[in-house]
Design a protein around this nucleic acid. Sequence first.
DNA 1: TATGAATGAGCATTCATTCAT
DNA 2: GATGAATGAATGCTCATTCAT
Lengths: 211, 211, 211, 211
Amino acid sequence: MQNEGPEAKIPKQKRSEKTRQKIIDAGLRLFSEHGYHATSSKKIAREAGVAIGSFYNYFTDKKQLLFELHRIHSERVHGMIARSIEESNILDPRTDSRSLIQAIVEQTWSLHDFSPALQREITALAYTNDEFAQMQRAEQGRDMAVLTEIFRKRKNTLRVNDLEAAGILIGQTMEAVMHSLWIFGSAIDHKRMLDALADMLHRYLFKDTKK
Amino acid sequence: MQNEGPEAKIPKQKRSEKTRQKIIDAGLRLFSEHGYHATSSKKIAREAGVAIGSFYNYFTDKKQLLFELHRIHSERVHGMIARSIEESNILDPRTDSRSLIQAIVEQTWSLHDFSPALQREITALAYTNDEFAQMQRAEQGRDMAVLTEIFRKRKNTLRVNDLEAAGILIGQTMEAVMHSLWIFGSAIDHKRMLDALADMLHRYLFKDTKK
Amino acid sequence: MQNEGPEAKIPKQKRSEKTRQKIIDAGLRLFSEHGYHATSSKKIAREAGVAIGSFYNYFTDKKQLLFELHRIHSERVHGMIARSIEESNILDPRTDSRSLIQAIVEQTWSLHDFSPALQREITALAYTNDEFAQMQRAEQGRDMAVLTEIFRKRKNTLRVNDLEAAGILIGQTMEAVMHSLWIFGSAIDHKRMLDALADMLHRYLFKDTKK
Amino acid sequence: MQNEGPEAKIPKQKRSEKTRQKIIDAGLRLFSEHGYHATSSKKIAREAGVAIGSFYNYFTDKKQLLFELHRIHSERVHGMIARSIEESNILDPRTDSRSLIQAIVEQTWSLHDFSPALQREITALAYTNDEFAQMQRAEQGRDMAVLTEIFRKRKNTLRVNDLEAAGILIGQTMEAVMHSLWIFGSAIDHKRMLDALADMLHRYLFKDTKK
DNA sequence: TATGAATGAGCATTCATTCAT
DNA sequence: GATGAATGAATGCTCATTCAT
């Protein structure tokens, strides 16, 4: 019984993987703090504690690092979404609609730990760079699909006619509020903003059951 | 007394003022199309048809030009808002709440003619630059104040408790949707998105009269 | 009587032209001495006594400077060829064929003052770079045409059948010997080599008159 | 006594020797195709299918590989020259002078299979590098000695006075034409050029025996 | 011996900005 | 005011070479 397993196949990559990780961490730190344009590849290498040559051993250029950071984050967030939804009462049909919305908002909020500064940089780049725009678009589509699926199950209690427009609208609104909370969050308490957001979405989407 | 006509009416519109204007126009064009970072001061001067030295005669640096562009735009938009509100039925107390919201949304939309690309650049800069952040903040506050004033007059039909949070929320939502429409507007018809937005805001803010 | 002449039209280019010239001189010096690849743009700027930025104000890149050096030289040589031929007895029909060849060889030699090192660099680059190859080719064609024209006038005393092949052959031979004289010239006296060359060409081209 | 066949005959042809050979082959391929400067040591290693470390196990640096390639080629050519001359009718005293020259030219041509691109690279390097210059010089001397020896045997039919200059001249001419045929060979047929060359050399060297 | 991750000096090039004319 | 030549710090990136495994 060979218990040497898969690890044996990647012996020398141990150090390599560490270097790569150090660069990624440094990139995340610096891009977030100072922005993409104000961060030189040399600074990243220095922050990572590696030689500039090592940077280019792992990434073809600076842009690719930003790309990679974004990809990693998207991946991570998406993995968490599935788990989050299952662990919450979102899928439970007994959950009333207000609590459903509240849960979605809060789950989303808890996932929004990715540097909003970096998010902005990516958004800005998406503007002048097609590759980034496409990635951004694809991601948003994926997120929206999850929401749509949830709402479809409560179709008969929904109030909106134009579901497509509603999907886009909700997606944009959530993103904008989350971003803003991260950035200007100090101006007002999180709780209040999230409550207001949940209120708005709920009243928009669902019929006034009783009340 | 020289009655030389039109020239006499704009004595200050010297060559000097014209040069400045040419630079501003060129800056708006290039920043919008290629972004702040991809636009060099030399290119701006060339596009404006003036010498690079002239650029620095009128602006201390590239950032200041962006600043100025933003200021000019804010100013212009604000002037239009006042007129727009007066010319619309927004202030008319007989206007029903749904029409009120619809009017606000449409007026806002009609004002959003400023390059969204540039808007993004400014937003991104606001992130790493305090001056820009403050200007951005101040402007949003000003816009919010206008909305708040309008809603205050219909206080008894309002449904929201936390007016402060609601103000911020609405501001952010409107901005996000407007931006997005400009950028990704082609995906879905303007009208549908604006309708959905008006629906959402209306249901959030006002009690269901009749039903 | 306006004696301000053409100079008045290029007042500010005075300094500019000087800088450009300094860069060209420095480039010629360094490329010749150390070769193209061993000469960095920074070194050229330093040798020229200008800032590196100035280098790029005048040349889009290092390659373009080499190109320019080559162009300048070709131009110069070509201008001299016409004058040289006229001033010599080459066109005089009374000149006997041996003296004719001798004159051509000597005129060519006197024109070959361009750094052979640089010539080599260009030749080498022509090998991996299409632009250079074309320029090189064009130039050789031009030079050959001059020779052909001269020989055509003494057609009946010529001994060669395949004039086309002869043209190419002579061009290559002359170039090779001239280059070599510059480079390894110290091994043997110029005069002896040029005599040998003239002998070879003469015996190849013309019938043994008398004998 | 292990009769294991071919392997036994080349016991030193270990893995080690094979690695070295792979690098040499890759170097020849890449230097020829893209030139010395455009070929990095990493690319050579990759082309050879070995690690970059192995490259430096066998060669102190990139230059040394080029050196080695040149040495190998010179060696090979020289071995062939001896055989070629013997197998031809060059040494046969009954061969008439025109046929002699023709044979020499054709033999030389058949040996010129070494990448002219690489030849140029070496020539260029010889210019800025003393080691290369010396090797180049030595080689030319060796080749010239062979020619001189052949001609000495027909001294009384020779027409040239300055044998030393003639030797250099012929060497250069042959080299130039051969190179050029390889490079620009397509412009004109090989045969015509080689004939023209043989004509020129023959008329230069030998008395017009009858005819 | 073979490997390939790590190194960092060095390079080509850009661009915001100054200042003499 | 207007001009544009001149500047040089800074940037993104390459590549020959080393060395621990």
